[in-house]
């Protein structure tokens, strides 16, 4: 026994035998739902955006350092892989932005009814898609 919390998992059956009580069901038991999907994706996009800040810092530091350092960042960003990373970054940013606003609405005590939770979850996904495509249309075509 490595953790005192393990002691809480020891129970007794009606005939007095001690047994190890089961843990509550895990991810593989639950049916995937939009609520759990958006929730875990909020975490994943948060972590991805944390990694994405490396690109922002690299770009800022390179711009402040030298022409050759800045040229290196620009060259990397303007490869197809660079564009793919930027596209993923945009999508993750919009998702985390929209799902974050959903959390702020919940924090105000609103939107907890099941139909509302499902609708706001779908709204986050649709808004992410629309805003990501719109951002790239503006970025590539208009600007």
């Amino acid at each position: 026994m490595t953790d005192v919390r393990e002691a809480l998992f020891i129970g007794r059956t009606t005939d007095g035998r001690t047994v190890r009580r089961p843990l509550s069901p895990h991810l593989q038991i639950y049916k995937p739902q939009i609520t759990s999907g958006v929730s875990i994706f909020h975490r994943i996009t948060g972590c991805a955006l944390a990694a994405g800040t490396l690109l922002l810092v690299w770009w800022l530091v390179a711009a402040a350092t030298s022409d050759s350092a800045f040229a290196t960042v620009s060259a990397v960003v303007h490869t197809w892989l660079g564009h793919l990373v930027l596209f993923g970054w945009t999508a993750a940013l919009w998702f985390h932005f929209c799902a974050g606003i959903r959390h702020l609405v919940w924090d105000s005590g609103r939107g907890f009814e099941l139909p509302e939770v499902h609708a706001s979850g779908r709204a986050v996904m649709v808004a992410t898609g629309v805003l990501t495509v719109l951002t790239w249309l503006i970025g590539l075509v208009v600007v």
Binding site: T53, L54, V57, V61, A63, A64
Partner: peptide, 13 residues
Amino acid sequence: LLAIAAIVAVLKL
């Protein structure tokens, strides 16, 4: 450190 690096870069720019 990342935050400080970004701040130093922005201030220099």
